[in-house]
Design a protein around this nucleic acid. Structure first.
Length: 463
RNA sequence: GGCGAGAUAGCAAAAUGGUUAUGCAGCGGAUUGCAAAUCCGCCCAUCCCAGUUCGAUUCUGGGUCUCGCCUCCA
């Protein structure tokens, strides 16, 4: 029985899908005007893990992750670069796919772009207007009338009074209430034609929040199971999505709201505005993508995750241990979870952990226990189970030797050079010239190559 | 100021009203020419103060500290 921490309830709840065995899941994706950083990596990896576990649990999942390809920052960046927003966003969508693929993130079933759903958004705004929840302001923007919607604040736990008392809410002249948010932005004089659409309220472009409401209901229906995103989207974005969707369709919007924690740097949220971010591709120059994925899944998805080289090094060491245990039987495991017997002790423990609000750290502890078991028994069956369970997390699917020998080449040594050195050392060992053998081993170690002798011969890996 | 989350060993990170987390690091042993890897064993912990309880790291209250949201943010 799967339990999910529902932000709406502030508690773990048993997951009951609207339609038996089917799950509709929507996750807020990227705004594509720059490269993805590690914070984006966490959202992608975390919900990829959720997607995989739901599927492994037998659900037929319809996973939607949107792309925001129209907004102020995109328009500004495109203008700075003197290129079209389409060229800019396509470039960064391609880059995002490269990063996601590297991290082992499966493609969602749908990846809608905002600019392709403007008619749906306009339709939704019209419904809101008919329902008395939207109004056109003097400045030409169409706004959502927050105080006309009962229950505004139910997701974020904020009341309109509290928000109103906040010092940081800016008063906007066009809004009848400072907390109202924009649904449709009127076109500005200097804006390019490609960022303008016709509407019954005049030319303009959509506000940020409406795209997710419109695309979510179009692809998953007005009422669906799971909606996810970073914790920073809880307010105002997701709160506003609820207001728009429920206001337009007059029915419940989402049953389970999931929010992942941030990636921190020195205990502080990694963010664009603070400038303390590392892009995924930057990190991948230094660390294997699977190490990064392992690092992300090693913490519970709702906990903060502190980024540092030391922590990545630690994750590398831990993943090395798992791969090392599989070395004796490289081809073991089909990764077929449908063939998995979930009643065996390790699998049952793994399943219980994952069913408990996706407790990946506990699930990983099972992996390590299993690895120790594999090391002891050298059992192909145990190795197969390890690989299959890890596969549910998108880990451990590569050839162990390829993983252990992979990574950045610190020295100029290539495989042939390393093997030549190993042969020279073996020859020295055969004539019991251990001084020479140790010299070679030390030399390789300084180049980041660790040698391991066994009865079957000498193998190597990167430190 | 309002609202919320959290404080677990050297580091990272789960869980739990009484009994091994797990990984890395450290210590001892096995193994090895010596190592590495592996195995066996060990060390190291629950922010502070009260309360509930036979028993609290876990529940309750208070305190301290940290972080997040309230503005674009994953």
């Amino acid at each position: 029985m799967l339990k999910i921490y529902n932000t709406l309830a502030r508690d773990k709840q048993e997951f009951v899908p609207i339609e038996p065995n089917k799950v509709g899941m929507y996750v807020c994706g990227m705004t594509v005007y720059d490269y993805c950083h590690l914070g984006h990596a966490r959202v992608m990896v975390v919900f990829d893990m959720v997607y995989r576990w739901l599927k492994a649990s037998g659900f037929d999942v319809n996973y939607v992750r949107n792309v925001t390809d129209i907004d102020d920052k995109i328009i500004r960046r495109a203008a700075e670069n003197n290129e079209s927003i389409y060229a800019l966003t396509q470039r960064f969508i391609d880059a995002m796919h490269e990063d996601a693929d590297a991290l082992g993130v499966q493609r969602p079933d749908h990846e809608p772009r905002a600019t392709q759903y403007v008619p749906e958004m306009l339709d939704m705004i019209a419904r809101l207007e008919q329902n008395g929840l939207a109004y056109k302001a003097a400045d030409g923007d169409v706004n959502f009338a927050v105080r006309k919607f009962d229950g505004y604040g139910k997701l974020s736990g904020k009341s309109l009074e509290d928000l109103r008392a906040g010092e940081r809410v800016n008063v906007n002249d066009g809004k009848s209430d400072p907390l109202d948010f924009v649904l449709w932005k009127h076109a500005k004089e200097d804006e390019a034609a490609e960022v303008q659409w016709d509407s019954q309220w005049g030319r303009g472009r959509p506000g940020w929040h409406i795209e997710c409401s419109a695309m979510g209901s179009k692809l998953l229906g007005p009422h669906f199971d799971i909606h996810g995103g970073g914790a920073d989207l809880q307010f105002p974005h997701h709160e506003n999505e609820i207001a728009q969707s429920e206001g337009a369709h007059q029915c419940s919007f989402v049953n389970y709201w999931m929010h992942n924690g941030f990636v921190n740097v020195d205990k502080e949220k990694m963010s664009k505005s603070l400038g303390n971010f590392f892009t995924i591709r930057e990190v991948l120059k230094k660390y294997d993508a699977e190490v990064v994925r392992f690092f992300i899944l090693r913490a519970h998805y709702r906990s903060p995750l502190n980024y540092s080289d030391a922590h990545l090094d630690d994750a590398k060491g831990a993943l090395d241990r798992l791969y090392t245990s599989l070395k004796f039987s490289p081809s073991s495991g089909s990764g077929r979870t449908d063939l998995m017997d979930w009643n065996t002790p390790h699998a049952a423990r793994f399943k219980a952990a994952m069913d408990d609000d996706f407790n990946t750290p506990e699930a990983m502890a099972v992996l390590f226990d299993l690895a120790a078991e594999v090391n002891r028994s050298q059992s192909v069956a145990a190795a197969t189970q390890l690989k299959t369970l890890a596969g549910v997390l998108g880990l451990l699917q590569r050839d162990p030797v390829e993983f252990l020998q992979g990574g950045a080449t610190v020295s100029g040594l290539d495989d042939a050079g390393i093997n030549a050195q190993i042969e020279a050392r073996t020859a020295a060992k055969q004539v019991r010239n251990f001084a020479e053998a140790d010299r070679i081993r030390k030399e390789l170690l300084e180049a980041g190559i660790v040698l391991e002798d066994s009865a079957a011969g000498t193998t190597w890996r990167r430190a």
